[in-house]
Design a protein around this nucleic acid. Sequence first.
DNA 1: TAGTCTAACTTTGAAATTCAAAGTACTTTT
DNA 2: AAAAGTACTTTGAATTTCAAAGTTAGACTA
Lengths: 98, 98
Amino acid sequence: MKKIINKLNKAFDNKVRLGIMSMLMVNDWVDFKTLKEMLDLTDGRLASHIKSLEENEFIDVKKEFVGRKPLTSYSATKKGRKAFSDHLDALEELLKNR
Amino acid sequence: MKKIINKLNKAFDNKVRLGIMSMLMVNDWVDFKTLKEMLDLTDGRLASHIKSLEENEFIDVKKEFVGRKPLTSYSATKKGRKAFSDHLDALEELLKNR
DNA sequence: TAGTCTAACTTTGAAATTCAAAGTACTTTT
DNA sequence: AAAAGTACTTTGAATTTCAAAGTTAGACTA
């Protein structure tokens, strides 16, 4: 019981990053605009949190054109899935007696 | 689905406050020293997070003497329980497809 | 009775985080 | 040529977080 909270990953203590990762755990690839709408964010705010997840290598990026428009999509890496899953396990453990 | 993350309570995005509230959801009264040890915190850090939860009226304080020593204990208020429970519901909803 | 200890804080200051707002680059549509 | 769409980046300021040191008050100790 001594240090469960230390198993919680700092990368996921923020709402936005939690939201992004949740989306990416369920859906293989999610594009920028969808994330933005789902999470009700401005471009800048979304982009900055995406960047930090990328820097942690928790998500991958794919850039393509659909029709004539650019489409940037994201997916959780194996490392990201593991980290997020571990984080949720720690959360669950912390809260198991709710 | 549009704004689940907005239901997450800012008061609980921090590890320490999450930890404190978890303890207080399970145990009626928990004293300062126990919290400190359970959560592996310094006095100051614990005290400051407790203060913010108090200011939100999420926890109550009880000061007494046991033997000849002061003993300060904390419990979750009704308001605190509700807020925390709502927060966990939002978390669950966000993560339900894990 | 002067000094030390324990419990529970408070204060201070600096680092880290978060965010809104504005700006950028490239392309398509009108 | 101008406006709009997509996906950012930059800037600066507010907020949050934390470690470290200082404080208070009573209790015990020499």
